[in-house]
Design a protein around this nucleic acid. Structure first.
Lengths: 126, 126
DNA sequence: CTGGATCCTCGCGGATACTG
DNA sequence: CAGTATCCGCGAGGATCCAG
């Protein structure tokens, strides 16, 4: 997956392009905060501050920044209610929900191997 | 998943501990390089430089650094052949292979929604 | 309440050189 | 070839202030 090396062949220029794009998307998505946002959002639709409280430990800046990125990639939808004070709600789009399914797998994995990993760590730190 | 907020209840201290540990592991694993390393390793057993070439675009330092981390968490095994020049081979452990399964899902997702995302991006960048 | 902008710091991460 | 150590620049990311 994700960049299989450049074979200088004449007409797979678009394949190389698609692969570098895949890498780019991968880099966007495969980071701590993006994954946590998607996971915590789940099937719900939350406001900015609600989401911030749910996740816990994420700064104002990081949340907005990652939300913009996810919105740009079409993974989260953003609806602004023109009230005062403003009310902005975020929710996963279909691609976002599909991604969340795989992140669930990651979370399950984390919990399943908690013990393994903890043991391996203390073995390593002799 | 991963830190459900501190209910000050008396005897879930170990649950909080497990949850903060889960967060820690999640932060270790949910980063670009770690995921790429595990994905590219796959079922094979590769030498340091082979792995480096396969991944492409990762620096010497980042590779060693992440390999140490993954080894510490027991996700990759490291066997040193006492020859000269030295030959060090890396391979996924059972927990590592289990993790890889979920990363495969992430890669599949990336390719499936390549078009969606690219379109959403150009829509966003008006 | 949401979000942008600004400042500032610290640590990621690249380049290089040196051991075994 | 594999790994560690050192130097260092630059950008991630926190804190704060201001606007709508």
């Amino acid at each position: 997956m994700v960049t299989k090396q450049f074979s200088g062949s004449p007409d797979d220029a678009d394949l190389m392009r698609a692969d570098s794009l895949a890498r780019e998307i991968f880099s966007d998505v495969a980071n701590k905060w993006a994954l946590l946002i998607i996971e915590f959002l789940g099937e719900r639709t939350l406001r900015f501050s609600e989401l911030r409280n749910e996740i816990g430990g994420i700064s104002h800046k990081m949340l907005t920044q990652n939300l913009r990125m996810l919105e740009r990639n079409g993974l989260v939808g953003r609806t602004v209610h023109p009230t005062v004070p403003p009310r902005v709600e975020y929710t996963l789009t279909e691609p976002g929900r599909a991604l969340r399914a795989t992140i669930d797998g990651l979370c399950d994995w984390t919990h399943r191997y908690l013990g393994h990993i903890e043991a391996s760590r203390s073995r390593f730190d002799d």
